[in-house]
Structure formats: C-alpha cells, structure tokens
C-alpha cells in the first residue's frame, strides 16, 4: 500500500435547507414533551416540588441546547449521492454514520412523507437491502427531488441483474 492515508470523501449533495427547520421543529416537540412531564408533576405534587422543578429546568435547558445545536450540525453532516453503481449517504451529528450500498443489492426503494415533513415540503427516501443492518435513509429531500431520486434508483436497479442477496 502507498504511504497515503485513505478516507471517505463526503457524498456530493447536501439535503434541502428546509430540513434545518424540520429538525428544529421536531426537536422542539420532543424537548417540550420532555419538559412538560416533570413540569406538570411539579404543579401537582407538592412535597417533591423542588426536585421536580429542578428536573424541569434541566430537561428544558438540555432540550433547548439540542434544538439550537443539532439542526445546524446535522445539516453539515447529512449528505447523499447516487451514482450508476451505488448509493452513498452520511448522516448523524454526535454519532455519525456513512453507508454504501451497491445498486445490484438494492431490494426496494420507497419515499415516505410524515405529517411534519409534509409541512416543510420534504420527503425521505428509504433504500432497503437484504442486510439486517437496516435500510439506508436519505431524509430531508425536497419532495420533487425525492421522487426523481426514486425514479432513477428504480430504473437503475431494474437494469442491474442479481437477486439482491
């Protein structure tokens, strides 16, 4: 081997900018729920009020911190690329993941639009292989782009031989 070190280059495309707002909203909802549980309990339970309020404050601050930091961070990490031979994605923020799957091993391709994603005009593309490692997901694509990607993937996989296992 040569003396150069190897590493994975980032996939070519970023996800849609609107994904930042989507992640922010999603995180806000989770944070609000996590804060509300001890908050409501603090109102109802008199004797443990101090500790419950403390828990509320901790949950609220942590949720807020995640909501501020996570979406920007994710936007820098989340990337995707579809070539003639493979699908390549990166995702995550604190814990990051890169996935590569060759076209010949792809079993199914779907799009998915949750209610929250729909309000921002976004879609997720899910690429399934026969592996137990779980599907590859490209989330936060503009809806039209997602449809295009699915069409392209379907076309390529259909013309690639193999029984995908």
């Amino acid at each position: 081997m040569s003396s150069d070190a190897l590493r994975l280059r980032p996939p070519r495309h970023r996800v849609d900018r609107r994904a930042i707002r989507w992640w922010t909203t999603r995180s806000l909802v989770t944070a609000a729920a996590a804060t509300a549980v001890p908050g409501v309990a603090a109102v109802l339970v008199e004797p443990a009020r101090f500790w419950l309020l403390l828990a509320t404050a901790v949950a609220g601050l942590a949720g807020l911190a995640v909501t501020v930091v996570m979406p920007q961070w994710r936007y820098r990490v989340h990337r995707w690329e579809v070539t003639d031979t493979a699908v390549y994605t990166s995702s995550g923020w604190l814990w990051q993941e890169w996935r590569v799957a060759p076209m010949s091993r792809i079993q199914t391709v779907d799009t998915e639009r949750g209610p929250l994603q729909r309000t921002f005009g976004l879609s997720s593309v899910t690429v399934t292989t026969a592996s137990a490692a779980g599907p590859i997901e490209i989330s936060g694509l503009a809806h039209e782009l997602a449809t295009e990607v699915v069409d392209q993937l379907t076309e390529t996989t259909e013309s690639t031989p193999g029984d995908a296992t």
Partner: peptide
Amino acid sequence: VIGWRVTRSPFQRRLGLADVSATTAAGEGL
C-alpha cells in the same frame, strides 16, 4: 458483502478511529 457502514462516535472521531462494518444478507447481517 452487500454494502458498507462506517460509524464514528464523538470519542472515536477525536481518536481517529471508526467502526467499519460489512453488511450482508447472511448471519447477523453486519
């Protein structure tokens, strides 16, 4: 081998490490 997965925790990134996994349809799948 039907794909690759590379994962890195914050600690692994600091130390220049990674978990590199081959995905497959056989056995445990990873």
